[in-house]
Amino acid sequence: MVTTDTRIDTEVVLSVEDLRTHFTTRWGTVKAVDGISFDLRKGETLGIVGESGCGKSVTMLSLMRLIPVPPGQIVSGKIVLDGEDIVPISEQEMAEIRGSKIALIIQDPMTSLNPVFSIGNQVEEAIEIHQDIPKQSIMDRALEVLRKVNIPAAETRVKDYPHQMSGGMRQRVVGAIGISCQPQVLIADEPTTSLDVTIQAQYLKLLKDIQKDSDLSIIFITHDFGIVAKMCDRVAVMYAGRIVEHGSVRDIFNNPSHPYTEALLASVPRMDRVVDRLFSIEGQPPPLHDLPVGCAFADRCPVVMDKCRESYPEIKAVSDGHTAACWKVE
């Protein structure tokens, strides 16, 4: 597997600056995403890793501007996509951008396809919304993207309905809809969790091939470091609504600098070697409506210091392009 660690030379297509998305609930303000920043370059894959409730899904929804308002609200920050900040723009303008510049593949292929339309119709619809081209060209284009995601005998299968396809095939159709308008950024939210391992391997390979062909930038939202290791160039590790460590995939795996990243990597069983005992992070993530003053990981951290409970650590550079938010980092 050959991946370039960082692509400093290529242009930035998506830049997120100090994004904060909060929810007002009866338990108080839930700071689901609280000040995250990252850049995504052309043709690059960024992994956003974390456990449920860490804010990775809310990040994804914020990027798509799909946060339910109320209770949610992007309270501050910028999301610059292709040179334009999409936070202040109107819903109508956003609808133009969704699908054409930034697209989304979600976890459950069963709910993201409409059961009463044929898959051909659904791909055609996605194209029709954004491209003003004649009907025949739309159909040709739909067939083309279905072939691109390796649907066997695409000419005949366009008439199939979602229930006539297997989970793997359905997820490919969802993928086809995602790339149908040649977006610059594709957000993949755990696209393979409902698939079997051998089907997952097929799907991941397909995504890589598509990316290579079209210089697509992908954000992979996942909880699985295996997917990160296989697919990503860079990684952002999230905990309790913030990015705690950010760097190239090799930086993160070879030199994890935040205790949470380190512990998480050590707690995953390995297939390639015998592990006598897994490292186990005790306790649970703190509730987001009641975060501690200092570092949110302090209560579970094996190397916690007094300082950690007093104030939130600044983001510091570990090495070039590798940052961590921990007081331990000098």
Binding site: G53, S57, P285
Partner: peptide, 21 residues
Amino acid sequence: MAADLSGIVIAPPTFGEKVAG
């Protein structure tokens, strides 16, 4: 599409919250 808010409500409700409910 609903936001994934799982994990937000982790703490069991206190007595006060139950009464409020």
